[in-house]
Design a protein around this nucleic acid. Structure first.
Lengths: 165, 165
DNA sequence: TTGATATATGTCATAATATAACATATCAAC
DNA sequence: GTTGATATGTTATATTATGACATATATCAA
């Protein structure tokens, strides 16, 4: 699995401040909501923000272990459960991996563009309340509580490799 | 995990003929495309059609084993790989489970309504070529090859249980 | 402040899901 | 009928995730 160097929308960016900004934003939301933003939870979020790519639970656990923050799978999974439950982090089901939310300030229904070559993931927004699916659901009597859209394909960086024309 | 008795769009139906019809349709498409619709592949599809719900790979394997069609995980996974690759079966990533395609006659981008209470799954259709995501992808330069939308919520049968009002 | 309750962590064990690797068999095309 | 590609059988192991229970920390009411 080749690594990717620019997974945010597949474009480079300077993230000197984006990690600290995002952490501060999440911290504020936890305080406002009466949630405990504990050291492990905070560190897991930081790791995901620093990487800006989807990481498996065991990759995260390895990092935590190196830092003496926990060595057993439940430590990582519990932190990830908390973070995903509150939409600070999203799970990419297609990859069994986790990625920090790119829009942590708003309630949203995320859509992911997942590169099948380099596994880079970009997060976009969808609008679930309009569109065909919402109509079908309401006609059926199904209540949608949360939804994710995962699109697989080729990112701009990998298209040249796969279509060398 | 409670079972569900009516997972197709959450409504009962008589499926006396739907299994054989669907199998015949897939068989015809395999012949047309030069694909080998082998006994194991056919039986896996039948099992999924008979159940009309999402089954885990190991549930399917248990059935195959009972019938003497294979006893090791790769047997089930290979058949499922074939069936999902050609869209005769879809994987529900949220559940790590597989379900027979409800619209095997058309090329499509499936959307699933997954009940969090009874795990029933309904398959709807989306239109990927229009809508916000397609615009974002083309603006980004990402080529979408396949996409899945998984919505989680409450099906009509489980709403009364969860909202006893 | 203390005691009661809920929430979070540490740890061991194991479950559930999925694939690598390689030998054998069957198919498809020439 | 030989050959190359495709499919299956089997062993072993990798990867992902959770159950269970003891300990610790936070929260809040009295």
């Amino acid at each position: 699995m080749p690594l990717n160097s620019d997974p945010i929308g597949f474009a480079h960016h300077d993230h000197a401040t984006c990690v600290t900004d995002a952490v501060a934003s999440v911290e504020a939301r936890c305080i406002a909501a009466g949630l405990q933003f504990t050291p492990v939870r905070k560190r897991v979020l930081e790791i995901l923000l620093e990487e800006h790519r989807a990481l498996g639970a065991y990759e995260i656990l390895d990092r935590l272990r190196d830092e003496g923050l926990g060595s057993q799978p439940p430590v990582a999974y519990r932190a990830l459960d908390f973070l995903t439950k509150h939409d600070f982090v999203h799970k990419i089901e297609r990859l069994n991996a986790f990625i920090a939310c790119a829009h942590p300030h708003e309630v949203h229904t995320p859509a992911f563009l997942i590169c099948r070559d380099c596994n880079a993931v970009a997060e976009a927004e969808t609008n679930l309340t309009q569109g065909r699916l919402a109509k079908i659901a309401s006609a059926t009597g199904f209540i949608i509580e949360r939804a994710i859209l995962e699109a697989e394909g080729l990112c701009p960086n990998c298209i040249p490799k796969s279509e060398p024309a």
